[in-house]
Design a protein around this nucleic acid. Sequence first.
DNA 1: TATAACCAACCGAATGATAGGTATGTGGCC
DNA 2: GGCCACATACCTATCATTCGGTTGGTTATA
Lengths: 193, 193
Amino acid sequence: MSRRGYARRERILAVALQEFAENGYRGASLARIAERVELSQAGLLHHFKSKERLLVAVLEYRDEMDTRRFDLASLRGAEALRRLADVVDYNARMPGLVQLFSVISGEAVTGDHPGHAWALERYRRLRASMADAFRSGVEAGEFRAGLDAEALADRLIAMMDGLQTQWLIDPEQVDMATIFRGYVDDLIAGLRP
Amino acid sequence: MSRRGYARRERILAVALQEFAENGYRGASLARIAERVELSQAGLLHHFKSKERLLVAVLEYRDEMDTRRFDLASLRGAEALRRLADVVDYNARMPGLVQLFSVISGEAVTGDHPGHAWALERYRRLRASMADAFRSGVEAGEFRAGLDAEALADRLIAMMDGLQTQWLIDPEQVDMATIFRGYVDDLIAGLRP
DNA sequence: TATAACCAACCGAATGATAGGTATGTGGCC
DNA sequence: GGCCACATACCTATCATTCGGTTGGTTATA
């Protein structure tokens, strides 16, 4: 891939991210994306062979950015939870990213959706990572023994994602970042041995 | 409206609910809904003048069923929270209803979506209702004074909705009802004066 | 009781827009 | 010269919606 081609792909991914976030997978149109990148539709499909592949590429692109910015898996105990609250803080300043995630994972509950595999994988990875954090917190004496790490991880993820949806629908009423941090703080306090 | 017409409308609403749940608003097609109701597309549009109106009718239809089944607003304190856990129990046996809600509120984060007003209204009503429950719990001496009723309500709704999405995407790993009840029980225990 | 008027409940066909995707060609950079 | 990065042109499918009708039953009137 040439330098020019590479730059174009980045452009396409950025625009497609916005369009998918705005309209969902089904609602987004290749024609509109192409127009915004100043390309013909066929030209767009030269870079990504189908709409489905474009979505997958966008999701991977987003995941890659996230992983680079926050290395959650390497943290343990309360520190991991606080870092997750940092992620939410960051997201609160990036409504586009949150909206992409929210719209796509809403659509992707259907098994045949092209984003389904991604959503499933993301949940499992995040759940495993947070469950580890709870367990390592126990080992470190930070959290009381006997906690249900998987259930706590599920709750944490549900809280994060649920607040995102609420915040997107009603941004004036819902202070996502503050509420999430409040939950995390209460959780840490409640788990002390 | 004739008896026959009324029955037809009910049929349409039931089928449309499934289709919107399956494919979202944008992904659903009037042609397919009409086909399943054994009606021409024009015949379908005789009963509901546009796709948008059909969606709104479906959402209202679902809300009405819910309201009839669970009268959340009249309950107070811990009782209201436990009743919400009952709702989640019930939902766990009705994946279609949960999916409708999940898909539509995912799509409806965009302001111009025909379900946006519904989603906004639903959040605000539910938040007010649950915040009241927390406050009345304080008055009854069930919960400690000084709690942030609105924030707790937001958390509760986020938890419920977030778990629904997780459950739909990964039903084998996520036991929505149990996890939610666990959260509610912990919450009630943690709020004791 | 017969009939005229009306209306809900449809249907078939057509509309214009838009969808994703393909086949074929071409200009420019390495 | 060869390949990457496109464009033009085109295809078929599907979309929501509209129009102009036809039924069959109900209601009001004479």
